[in-house]
Design a protein around this nucleic acid. Structure first.
Length: 274
DNA sequence: AATCTCGTCAACCGCTATTTC
DNA sequence: AGAAATAGCGGTTGACGAGAT
């Protein structure tokens, strides 16, 4: 056999398409008894004529006991819209904020309902950070330029972040050490006031929107609170999208991700498509 | 009643990331 | 170190049902 990865399974003689009740029962029974340490080996052991990948998908998207079935609530839909504006087509990431919902389900809901709702008579999605048109380029961190160049993409995040920064809720969730909690926030207390992030030592990563900007100009901009927020937010996004790799310091951002997104979701004024 | 169109959603495919050996 | 195996992600497809013609 040549190089490259082998097919995930021998497809010959395996069932495809819709799962039968009997197959479901076999899969459930097996996983309840033995778990799913090895998806590749599972179908054979469970007596299923399916490939492991198919089993995994069936379990995670349909059979898992914690799956929430039924229509999405308006709240859930709004959450998806907000998260999509923040994260782009990162369905699994979005799903992690909606307990009981799967990435596949959310993707379907977006494609069938929410995309239209977002587009109909309202603004086009103003951003689609990290979204990609094909699987191949998604890890390249491609950023789609907004369709309408007049739309101030960053301004929208500025405004959202501004609002959040003014609320105690954000203060507490994003800067938890103010509550006597964590001590490893990238912000110092004075920087928290100016809302500027502390750049990791020895790093100097230009933000995406500042690429090619003269250095003085960038320094000048740094003084303002608004730009501080912008930098902060872009830093976060760049990190999130894998556009930068600053080592340990940036790993800490990951820890705050949930808090930041949660805060945005709780903020009623942040609705990216209005 | 027949057939066409469209929306929905489960499942598949192809790819990358991560882990194992 | 690097190849192979495995897990997971996101885009796409196709079966199916409902409503329209």
């Amino acid at each position: 056999m040549g190089r490259g990865r082998a097919p995930c399974c021998e497809k010959i003689g395996l069932n495809k398409g819709t799962w039968t009740e009997e197959e479901d029962m076999k899969l459930i029974a097996y996983i309840h008894k033995y778990g799913h340490q090895n998806w590749r080996a599972l179908p054979k052991l469970a007596g299923l004529l399916r490939c492991g990948k198919s089993c995994r998908l069936r379990w995670t998207n349909y059979l898992r006991p914690d799956i929430k079935r039924g229509n999405f609530t308006r709240d859930e839909e709004d959450t998806i819209i907000k998260l999509h504006a923040l994260l782009g087509n990162k369905w699994s990431k979005i799903a992690s904020f909606l307990p009981g919902r799967t990435d596949n389900e959310i993707k379907n809901v977006w494609n069938t309902h929410l995309k239209k709702r977002a587009a109909s008579g309202e603004q086009q999605p103003v951003t689609n950070f990290g979204a990609s048109t094909s699987t191949g380029d998604r890890m390249a961190g491609a950023i789609e330029i907004p369709v309408d160049p007049a739309v101030d993409v960053f301004g929208i995040f500025d405004d959202a972040l501004s609002t959040l920064m003014q609320s105690n809720e954000m203060e507490d969730s994003v800067f938890p050490e103010t509550l006597g909690g964590r001590q490893d926030s990238p912000w110092t207390s004075s920087q928290k006031q100016s809302r500027g992030p502390v750049a990791p030592e020895g790093t100097n990563h230009p933000s995406v929107h500042d690429a090619g900007k003269p250095e003085e100009e960038a320094c000048e901009a740094e003084g303002t609170r608004r730009d501080g927020q912008r930098e902060e937010w872009l830093d976060y996004l760049e990190k999130e999208l894998g556009l930068r790799d600053d080592g340990e310091e940036w790993d800490r951002w990951d820890e705050m991700e949930g808090d930041m997104v949660d805060s945005l979701l709780r903020d009623d004024s942040f609705y990216p498509y209005n």
